[in-house]
């Protein structure tokens, strides 16, 4: 039996749509609430980022609780950067007890790219070990080998980078994530469908759902900035040129157009099992993309 609404959807064989919302550096969550309300009925699940780019913010678990309160389906993003194994396990117990059952396991960006560069980087576990740890909790014991009163059960996701400039070691890591027990993979932002096609040729041998990550660009400048400063982002020159071809102020519109075009192709060609839309700060335009790409999704 499926363990969460999202897992049910993963198993349904239908095209899956997820998106992400980034919590604020604030105790005022009104904007996040607004975004969640806007998106919760239009996508299958909403990822809440975990101090994205190592910038301190309202936590992922807090955002997931808001999604639950508002009647949506959350995906808890969990990085290994800030918590040791005790804290990670404890947070998973909390998540499960509040009916947050989808977890995306990430190693986490380096502390050096964020806004607290002098912080102690934890990395007690890596992403593969985190997946294994969750499967251990599910079996009824914690990492110390002690019995749990009652065990949780999660739907586990991870990430993969099909456009990495050196793909072989990334594929080895992908294998390890699948073997450790990942059920779905959300890719890093993809800008060339050729790399997704290549990756899917490899990935289709595994029993795992792949959601293509799509970043909605808002200007050529943003694309260049992300290329140089955001770990794991490789935006092709063709896309940067396309972004630069429009007049000032029309960038986001172009970004929406590119994302829509890619989603349509992915769906038409049945390239992978779904998409994960990352609008980085422009969450309110996600419904426009879904509409333009003729993706009207009903959760559950």
């Amino acid at each position: 039996m499926a363990n969460s609404l999202f897992e049910e959807k993963l198993n349904s064989g239908e095209f899956i749509v997820t998106t992400e919302v980034g919590p604020p550096k604030s105790v005022d969550v009104s904007e996040v609430v607004h975004h969640i309300k806007l998106l919760k009925d239009k996508v299958d699940a909403i990822n809440i980022t975990d101090h994205q780019s190592s910038v301190m913010r309202f936590p992922s678990i807090g955002g997931c609780l808001l999604v639950k309160e508002l009647g949506g389906e959350p995906i808890l993003q969990m990085t290994c950067r800030d918590r040791n194994r005790l804290a990670l396990q404890a947070e998973l117990l909390l998540a499960y007890s509040r009916d947050i059952k989808n977890v995306l396991c990430l190693t986490g960006d380096s502390v050096d790219v964020g806004d607290h560069k002098e912080a102690k980087p934890v990395f007690d576990l890596d992403s593969v070990q985190l997946i294994k740890m969750i499967r251990t909790l599910e079996s009824g014991t914690d990492m110390g080998g002690n019995e749990l009163g009652a065990a949780p059960k999660f739907c586990i996701g991870a990430t993969v980078h099909p456009e990495a400039d050196f793909i072989e070691p990334q594929l080895i890591k992908f294998d390890k994530k699948v073997n450790a027990g990942a059920q779905f993979l959300q890719t890093q932002g993809i800008f060339e469908l050729a790399s997704l096609r290549r990756f899917m040729q490899y990935a289709s041998q595994f029993n795992i759902k792949i959601l293509a990550g799509l970043i909605v660009l808002s200007s050529a400048g943003m694309a260049r900035y992300m290329n140089n400063n955001v770990p794991g982002i490789i935006i092709s020159q063709a896309i940067i040129d396309e972004m630069a071809s429009v007049e000032k102020g029309k960038g986001l519109q172009k970004g929406i157009e590119i994302a829509t075009r890619m989603i349509k192709t992915i769906k038409e060609e049945n390239l992978c099992h779904g998409v994960h839309i990352m609008a980085v700060g422009n969450e309110s335009i996600v419904p426009d993309i879904l509409e333009a790409a003729e993706l009207v999704s009903t959760p559950g």
Binding site: D109, V113, K173
Partner: peptide, 18 residues
């Protein structure tokens, strides 16, 4: 990051994301 199971996704041009 001192990780043990292979590269993170931040590695680019053979260099470290940090």
């Amino acid at each position: 990051k001192g990780i043990l199971n292979g590269p993170c996704a931040g590695s680019k041009n053979g260099k470290c994301e940090a």
